[in-house]
Lab assay of single mutants.
Amino acid sequence: MSGNGNAAATAEENSPKMRVIRVGTRKSQLARIQTDSVVATLKASYPGLQFEIIAMSTTGDKILDTALSKIGEKSLFTKELEHALEKNEVDLVVHSLKDLPTVLPPGFTIGAICKRENPHDAVVFHPKFVGKTLETLPEKSVVGTSSLRRAAQLQRKFPHLEFRSIRGNLNTRLRKLDEQQEFSAIILATAGLQRMGWHNRVGQILHPEECMYAVGQGALGVEVRAKDQDILDLVGVLHDPETLLRCIAERAFLRHLEGGCSVPVAVHTAMKDGQLYLTGGVWSLDGSDSIQETMQATIHVPAQHEDGPEDDPQLVGITARNIPRGPQLAAQNLGISLANLLLSKGAKNILDVARQLNDAH
Rank of each mutant, 00 (worst) to 15 (best):
E86G: 08
S75D: 06
T294V: 11
L342E: 03
K87N: 12
L64T: 11
E73P: 08
G60R: 05
H199A: 10
W283A: 04
Q194L: 09
V124T: 06
L170I: 10
R164W: 12
L85D: 02
S146T: 08
M196H: 12
E209S: 06
I318R: 05
L154S: 06
L285W: 08
I166V: 06
G218V: 04
G168N: 04
A354N: 01
N340S: 10
S96Y: 05
S165M: 06
I205A: 08
N322E: 13
P264K: 00
L351A: 00
T109M: 09
I113C: 11
K74D: 05
S45Y: 13
Q181F: 11
P101G: 05
G281D: 00
D233C: 11
E89N: 13
K62W: 07
A297E: 05
R325N: 05
D91G: 05
K115R: 11
L170N: 10
Q217N: 00
E182V: 15
A191H: 01
I350S: 04
R149F: 07
A112E: 02
A55H: 12
E82P: 01
K128W: 11
G326Q: 01
L170D: 01
P313C: 06
T145K: 02
E135K: 04
Q204P: 07
V38F: 05
L232Q: 03
P159A: 12
H256F: 15
V215P: 07
R164Y: 07
T319Q: 01
S288G: 13
L177F: 06
D228I: 02
D312W: 05
A112G: 07
R175S: 10
I187W: 03
V316M: 01
M295Y: 15
K176R: 11
I187Y: 02
D312A: 11
A360L: 07
S57K: 00
P241W: 14
H160P: 10
E117S: 06
G317R: 03
V224R: 04
D240S: 02
T59Q: 13
Q153G: 08
Q275T: 00
A270G: 06
D65Y: 10
G111I: 00
H160G: 11
I71P: 09
N171A: 10
G281H: 05
T58C: 12
P313D: 03
L92Q: 02
V301T: 03
K272V: 15
D273I: 04
T41M: 14
L234F: 08
G111Y: 02
T269M: 05
Q155S: 13
H199N: 14
F77R: 01
A191S: 09
V202N: 02
R175T: 08
S262R: 15
N118P: 11
L42H: 01
R173Q: 01
L188A: 11
S45C: 15
L357F: 14
K43R: 10
P101M: 06
H126Y: 06
G308I: 14
Q328M: 15
V123I: 13
R251H: 02
T145D: 02
L174V: 10
V143M: 10
D99I: 00
G203T: 01
K115D: 14
T298L: 06
I187T: 05
P324E: 03
S262G: 15
T102P: 10
N171S: 12
T269N: 07
L97D: 01
K132H: 10
K176N: 06
Q50W: 00
I187M: 08
D228R: 13
Q155V: 10
L170A: 07
L285A: 13
L341H: 06
D289W: 14
L351D: 14
T59S: 14
A360T: 10
F253G: 04
E310G: 13
L254R: 04
T298Y: 10
P119D: 04
F129L: 12
E293F: 08
I113T: 07
V267L: 10
A252W: 00
D273S: 04
M196R: 05
E223P: 04
E310F: 00
A67E: 00
F129Q: 13
D61K: 06
D352L: 12
G280C: 01
R173K: 04
S147L: 00
N322D: 15
S75T: 15
C211R: 00
P241S: 14
K87H: 07
E135N: 08
L97R: 01
H95P: 01
A84C: 08
E179T: 10
H300V: 14
V267Y: 00
Q275A: 00
I53Y: 13
G48V: 10
A249W: 03
L100P: 05
L170W: 01
K87M: 11
A331N: 00
P324V: 10
G280N: 01
E250Y: 01
K140T: 09
T298V: 12
P208G: 13
L351G: 01
C211G: 07
P241M: 15
H126F: 07
C114W: 08
H256T: 14
S57W: 10
D311K: 02
Q356C: 00
I113W: 05
G144W: 04
L238W: 03
R355W: 15
Y213I: 02
S57L: 10
I323Q: 15
L134M: 10
L76T: 11
K176I: 12
E139P: 01
E210M: 02
E139N: 13
D240F: 11
L170M: 14
L232I: 14
A331D: 07
T298W: 12
L342G: 06
L245W: 10
K132N: 15
A249G: 02
D240A: 08
L42C: 08
I54E: 14
